[in-house]
């Protein structure tokens, strides 16, 4: 097995063993979005007293949906204010938990893993944030340099009098998209590896972890990017399948709506699982890329 398949297989194994961590992530998702939508749900209640209710119950009706939005328009501004707050809360929770999850995975403890992931994540957060900051700034810089700048040059090259959408502009768009994807995949792999290093105290600062991660990824960039890409595709498939399923359900009764919630949330639980598995994969990748290979008794021993 090569680096890619070994890392991915190990990630799946770890995520399955620590399935509670996926549940933990899913809870943060459910709670964050529920809180963010509380004011909006209250507002939407008016639809039951409007002529749009029956039409929306029947299935997608664009005109009725717009009519409903126009009807509650005045309240939408304040109600939407909670959504950015919810997104921020969720992002913060995800960041805190990511390193905690990595440490829990690495230590192999199954009992009390949820509690453990939270405690360790909080303890490691300052360092995690340091690595996140470097990930953000570094990615932005590389995107500008590798994707943005060449694309801009290509775009401007033909001059002002060139017709729109010529060969250069097409190449600029293509280059921009592909280069941005490549930069993201490598940088994201490096960020995951940095967190894995922080989780095992292999670096004392986020900056140090990020540097060390750079060394681990260097020389195996393709494999690292492939791992991230693989999980990106898995998530995209999961989201598509479950969203389609949810739309197809189109419940017409209150019980049906409850059923829809259950089915769709299973999808999000699986997405959470994929996230844990990705972290596990990159953690395994880091181990396999260590300059002096060391056996991994804890991880290898059956629990």
């Amino acid at each position: 097995m090569n680096l890619f398949t070994r890392s991915v297989a190990e990630g799946v194994r770890l995520a399955a063993r620590h399935y509670r961590l996926s549940v933990l992530l899913w809870i943060t998702l459910f709670v964050s979005s529920s809180l963010a939508l509380r004011p909006l749900s209250g507002l939407v209640r008016a639809v039951d007293g409007s002529p749009f209710g029956e039409r929306l119950l029947a299935g997608w009706d664009g005109d009725a949906f717009v009519g409903m939005l126009a009807g509650i328009q005045e309240g939408l501004g304040p109600a939407f204010a909670a959504i950015p707050a919810g997104i921020l809360l969720f992002a913060l929770l995800s960041l805190v938990l990511s390193t905690g999850i990595l440490r829990t995975l690495q230590q192999g403890l199954v009992q009390g893993s949820m509690r453990r992931a939270v405690i360790e994540g909080v303890a490691l957060f300052p360092k995690t944030f340091g690595a996140f900051f470097r990930f953000g700034v570094g990615t932005a810089a590389w995107l500008l340099l590798v994707a943005g700048l060449p694309a801009w040059i290509l775009y401007e090259l033909p001059g002002k009098d060139a017709p729109p959408n010529n060969g250069f502009t097409n190449a600029a768009i293509l280059w921009g998209v592909l280069a941005a994807l490549a930069v993201f995949l490598v940088r994201r792999a490096r960020f995951d590896v940095a967190r894995a290093l922080l989780a095992q105290n292999a670096a004392s600062t986020g900056r140090g972890a990020s540097r060390l991660a750079g060394r681990r990824v260097a020389g195996a960039r393709v494999a690292a990017a492939a791992i991230v890409l693989f999980w990106l595709i898995v998530v995209a498939i999961l989201q598509t399948v479950f969203t389609r399923l949810g739309v197809a359900m189109n419940p017409q009764t209150n019980a049906g709506t409850t059923g829809l919630v259950v089915v769709r949330q299973i999808g999000f639980l699986l997405v959470a699982f994929a996230h844990v598995a990705q972290l596990g994969s990159l953690s395994a990748f880091e181990r396999l890329r260590r300059p002096v290979p060391t056996p991994l008794p804890r991880l290898a021993s059956p629990g």
């Binding site: 939508l37 939407v44 009764t253 209150n254 709506t257 829809l260």
Partner: peptide, 14 residues
């Protein structure tokens, strides 16, 4: 009659 608001809220949440 069933609540359309509940259904709409559910899809918005999703």
């Amino acid at each position: 009659s069933p609540s359309a608001a509940r259904k709409v809220s559910t899809y918005l949440k999703h």
